[in-house]
Design a protein around this nucleic acid. Structure first.
Lengths: 336, 336
DNA sequence: CCTGGTTTGTACAACGTTGTAAGCAACGTT
DNA sequence: AACGTTGCTTACAACGTTGTACAAACCAGG
C-alpha cells in the first residue's frame, strides 16, 4: 500500500512529470502511444493524485459544505441526501456540517471555520439573520430556507405563504371552522413561522373565518415533542379546534400523538396537516396531509447556484430562486 | 475579503514566516512580546491557515469520512449526528459520504476514492463482506454494524444475538405464543438479519415455543414500506401472529401501519417490537418497544478507535468493541 | 531543402505551509 | 575572559501538483 507520486509514474513510463500530469488531466496534445504508456504505469502503480497538492496549486478543493442545524431532523436528512447526490453529479464532494442551530455556532460556520477546505457552502441557518451574514461571506454561499430571504447571498426557497395558504384552504374546504395553527414564533428567528402564519391568516380571510388568537400556538422548536406539548396546551386551554395546521411535519407527528393520548380521532374529531412531506408522514397512523416541497429541485438549484458562484462571477447581485411544491392530502385530513 | 498568508502576517509583525507559523502552532519558545505582536497581526489581517498547504506538508488533512448507505435512514442520520459531535471534540472534521448501499459503490468508497482528502474512514457497509474489504484498506478504517464482524479492520457493534433474544423474550413474557419475525434475509449480505434471527430462535427455545417457518418473513430492505408489505403478506397468508419482532424500527413502523390498515389493534391483537430506538418510535401511535443501542457510545468508540489508528499503530491486529444496549418497552407491547 | 506553423514534450517556478539546521543573542559557569 | 548552554529566531528545502515558457520534433507548402 505504498503511496505513489507523479514522479514515480513518470520514471516508470519514461516521460516527464508534466506529461503524466497532462495525461491525468486529459490534456489533448499527447501522442496516443505516450498516453498509453503513461496510463499503463498509472494502473500498475495504482496511482492516485494527492488532492491536497492539487488543491494548493489550483486554489480549489472540489469540496462544498452543507451546513444544517441538526442532522437527524428528517427534513434536513432528506435534503442532505439530495444535496450529496446533486453535488456528486457535478463532481463535487460534500462535507456535512452540523451547527446545532445556535447563533454563535452558525456565525462560525458562515464566517468560514473550514475556509481553505471548502470551495463553497450551502447553508440552512436557523438563528442567523440576513444582517448577521452581511460581510461574513468569505466563501461563496447559497442559503436555504426562509430565514434569510433577500439576504446577501444566493437563496433557494419555496413560496411559503402560498403553500401555507393552500393547505389551510384545504382544511377550510373540508368544512372545518375552528382551524388552529401550531408553530408560531415571535422571535426574530422565526421567519418561516411568520410566512406560514401569514398564509394561514390569508386563507382564513379567504374562507370568511375569523382569526382567533387563542387558536395560534407557539412552539419554541419544531420537534415532535414541541408539537405534542402545544397540542396538549390547546386541549387543556378549552379551545376546541376541529383542525390543526402544523408549521412542519415533525410538529404534526407530535400533534397526532397528543390527540391519540387525548382519545380524539383524526380526522373525524380533529383534522391535522403538516408541512415538508417527510418520509415518516407517509407511514404514520394516520398518514399525514402535508405540503410537499420539491426537495430534489431545491438541492439541485442550490448546488448549481453554488457552482456558478464558484466558477463564475462572485460579485453579481444575489439571486432568489423558488422551487415548486404541491399539496399532498392524506388520511389525517381526508380519512381512509 | 482578501486572503492572507503567513508571509503577510510576518511582514506586518516584522518577523519571519516561521515565527508566525510557530505562534500559530503553539510552539513554546516564542518571546511573549513577539507572540503578542504576531497575534495582533493575525487578528488585524483575519488570517486563516491554508489547510491544503498544511495538509500537503503534514500528510494529514484533519478530515475523516463517515460512509453510510443512505443519509435519510433515521438510524444512520442519528448515528451521523453523534459521529460529527464526537469527532468535533477531538478536533476532526467529518465528511459524510453516501454509498447507496450498492456493492460496487461501497467498494469504491472503501478503496479510497477520497484518498488524500481524508485521514480515515468510519464505514457502515451493507453489501460488502469482510473478504471484499481485505486488502482494500489503504486508509485507516473502522467498521460499524454486524456486516463485517471479525473483518480486516477495527469494528464497533453491539451484541445482536443477546439483544434480539431479550426483546423476543419480552414478547414471550407477555404471554404471546405465536411470535413472528420480520426482516430475515438469505443473502450473504444479511449478517445483522442472521444474528437477530439467531437471537429470536434462541428466545423461542428458551420459552418452549416451536419455531414456525411460516412466521418468519423476509424483507429485501429494511424500510417502512418493506415492513408494511411483509406484514400484509403474513396476514393474507393466514398465519395469525399475536406478536411481531421486527429486525429494525423502520420495518416496525411499516408493520404498525399495515396492522392499522387491517383493523388490528396494537398491542391487544398483535404486539410489535423493533430494534434501533429511532426518534420516530417514541412518538408513533402506539409508541414502539425496541432495543436501544447506545448510539453515542458507538460513535465515540468508533471515532476514538479511528484516531488511534491514524496516530498510532496501523499494523496492530483489528479490535472488536461492543457497545451497550438496553430494552426499551413501550406501548406497542405494553399498551397504555 | 527551407520556411512557418503546429504538435508534443520538457524544465522550472510557484501554490502556503512546516521540519531541519543553523545563527545569534543573552546567560551562567569555569 | 573564554566557554558551553539555553532561548529565540531565521533561512532554506520540501510536501505533490500544475501553469508558463520554451525547446524539439514534426508536418505541409513553396
Amino acid at each position: 500500500m505504498v503511496r505513489h507520486r507523479l514522479k514515480d509514474v513518470a520514471e516508470r513510463a519514461g516521460v516527464s512529470v508534466k506529461t503524466v500530469s497532462n495525461v491525468v488531466n486529459g490534456y489533448v496534445h499527447v501522442r496516443p502511444d505516450t498516453r498509453a504508456r503513461v496510463e499503463e504505469a498509472i494502473a500498475e502503480l495504482n496511482y492516485r493524485p494527492n488532492l491536497s497538492a492539487r488543491n494548493l496549486r489550483k486554489g480549489r478543493t472540489g469540496v462544498i459544505a452543507f451546513a444544517v442545524p441538526e442532522l437527524d431532523i428528517p427534513y434536513f436528512a432528506e435534503l442532505a441526501r439530495h444535496v450529496v447526490t446533486a453535488a456528486a453529479e457535478l463532481g463535487w464532494t460534500v462535507l456535512i456540517d452540523q451547527t446545532g442551530g445556535g447563533r454563535e455556532q452558525e456565525r462560525v460556520v458562515a464566517s468560514g471555520i473550514t475556509e481553505h477546505l471548502i470551495d463553497g457552502l450551502i447553508f440552512s441557518p436557523l438563528a442567523l439573520t440576513a444582517e448577521d451574514l452581511t460581510g461574513l461571506a468569505g466563501t461563496p454561499m447559497v442559503l436555504l430556507g426562509e430565514r434569510v430571504d433577500h439576504g446577501p447571498a444566493d437563496h433557494v426557497g419555496i413560496d411559503n405563504v402560498s403553500a401555507a395558504r393552500e393547505i389551510t384552504a384545504h382544511l377550510a374546504g373540508l368544512g372545518r371552522r375552528r382551524i388552529a395553527a401550531i408553530g408560531s414564533q415571535r422571535t426574530p428567528e422565526g421567519a418561516s413561522a411568520r410566512l406560514r402564519l401569514a398564509g394561514y391568516t390569508a386563507a382564513l380571510a379567504d374562507a370568511g373565518l375569523a382569526y382567533d388568537e387563542r387558536l395560534v400556538a407557539p412552539a419554541p422548536a419544531w420537534h415532535r415533542a414541541d408539537g405534542a406539548a402545544a397540542m396538549r396546551g390547546l386541549l387543556t386551554s378549552g379551545v376546541r379546534p376541529d383542525a390543526v395546521f402544523c408549521f412542519n411535519d415533525t410538529l404534526a407527528l407530535g400533534v397526532l400523538r397528543a390527540l391519540h393520548e387525548a382519545g380524539l380521532r383524526v380526522p373525524e374529531d380533529v383534522a391535522v396537516a403538516g408541512f415538508d412531506d417527510i418520509e415518516d408522514g407517509r407511514f404514520s397512523v394516520p398518514t399525514l396531509s402535508t405540503i410537499a416541497p420539491d426537495k430534489e429541485r431545491i438541492a439541485r438549484l442550490a448546488v448549481e447556484l453554488l457552482a456558478g458562484r464558484i466558477d463564475g462571477d462572485r460579485t453579481a447581485p444575489p439571486r432568489e430562486l423558488s422551487a415548486p411544491w404541491r399539496l399532498a392530502p392524506r388520511e389525517s385530513t381526508l380519512g381512509r
